[in-house]
Design a protein around this nucleic acid. Structure first.
Lengths: 168, 168
DNA sequence: TTAAACTTTCAAAACTTATTGAAACTTTAT
DNA sequence: ATAAAGTTTCAATAAGTTTTGAAAGTTTAA
């Protein structure tokens, strides 16, 4: 396979994966483009490579900075802003895990805790079923939360060797 | 908090979480409703509880069956079909993990393997950067795949106690 | 201070996805 | 065989999301 074709395929696949995970396609594609680019790129470069408008490129770049996945770079003597992506895939995974934990898991944990306080008649099947589901989900969510917490602090090699050793 | 209010809140929260995870809101809500319902429900019950149309209810129920999250139930002497959800939260988590692995992770692994075969000049920064990203993502994805594989086979208590023990 | 270079914003348009509702279809009981 | 009960389909529509592009804003150099 040719490098040029492989790049296109990679960008496309990353975009698709992103959209299945609630990250918009363009954002994932811009990230992919920067990830495989050895040099920092300008807004213009990105607009051209992906055939997107200036407005779209600008918003997307801002979002990616907000997710901690890319950074601005200033080149001495140049007006233009350049963007580059952290190339360390473990950092990327941690950064995404951190953001999703904050944006999604934590609000859910908060609600589950509230819902655990519901009072009712232990003889009522409606109450019992509700309580059991909420309690069980709460436990699961807490375990996920603790595991993510560990992941955020961990070195890649240590993390996987620990997990895979136990499970092999 | 009142049981009735708590139920509504749970259904709403589950729906929101679903939509953040690429599962449509209605599907997540129907699942939530069945999860906290001690009895199997009819299409009518669901339509009414969630104020959705017959067509939508029918499609959503079919999708949930496709995900292995709910089942049809026949009551002796009744024409109507009833639906109920597996109440075991670990089973649900496994089922979701299994489907997403199949639908999302496996296609990505396939593409990554194709992309790893790309040939090029080791001195070319374009090539080196591309190759490194693809290789690193491939490794990460394989580790996730193995971990999920273990999870699919595991008992809940064993799984979490193994993970949390190592990480404490 | 001015104007060129560049960035940001946001309302409108394009696109995508979800939902409705009525018609077609299937099953069952008589 | 028929009609009642129930289920499924799908074209039309609604709702939601993303993208555009032009105007407004900002920064820099001369």
């Amino acid at each position: 396979m040719e490098l040029a074709a492989a790049k296109l395929k990679f960008i496309e696949a990353w975009g698709k994966l992103g959209s299945e995970w609630g990250i918009n396609r363009t954002m994932a594609q811009v990230h992919a483009l920067l990830l495989i680019s050895p040099e920092a790129l300008t807004t213009e470069d990105i607009m051209e490579s992906l055939s997107i408008s200036r407005g779209n490129a600008n918003m997307t770049l801002r979002d990616l900075i907000g997710w901690g996945l890319i950074e601005k770079q200033h080149k001495a003597g140049e007006r233009k802003e350049y963007f580059f992506a952290d190339k360390d895939v473990w950092n990327i995974a941690r950064q995404v895990a951190k953001e999703r934990k904050k944006r999604e898991l934590e609000p859910v944990l908060k609600i589950l805790n509230e819902l655990s306080t519901v009072a009712g008649d232990e003889k009522d099947p409606e109450f019992k079923t509700f309580k059991k589901s909420v309690t069980d989900i709460n436990k699961l969510a807490n375990n996920v939360d603790k595991t993510l917490e560990t992941m955020l602090k961990a070195e890649e090699n240590w993390f996987w060797s620990s997990i895979l050793k136990v499970f092999k």
